[in-house]
Amino acid sequence: MSPVGTQHYLVVAGLMFAFGALGVLWRRNALGVLLSVEVMLNAGNVALVAFARERGQVDGQALALFVMAVAAAEAAVGLALVVSVFRTRRTVNLDELGELRG
């Protein structure tokens, strides 16, 4: 049996990205959407690290660390927004937040 290779990592990353995307598109809860976004970002990280290992360089790993930092910031801002929306609208159900409708 062959050792775990880059392809395996990529499959995991793809699945993670797909599930994350589905979550972003279908979750009703704003918090759930934010979580799904994290999943998608981490799918990206997995792929980056996998390619870095494949090529024996550290660029990908460095980039993954950047992504984590940005994701942390994004989560902070996103959660703040959700809290703020909840305070004004008493809900975080996205179907009820249709303010952009023409």
Binding site: A21, V24, L25, W26, V33, L94, D95, L97, G98, E99, L100, R101, G102
Partner: peptide
């Protein structure tokens, strides 16, 4: 066509994706 504009970002994101 105006019905497509639901105001729900998720719907737009579905289209984009």
């Amino acid at each position: 066509v105006g019905r497509l504009q639901t105001g729900l970002t998720q719907n737009y994101a579905v289209g984009i994706t």
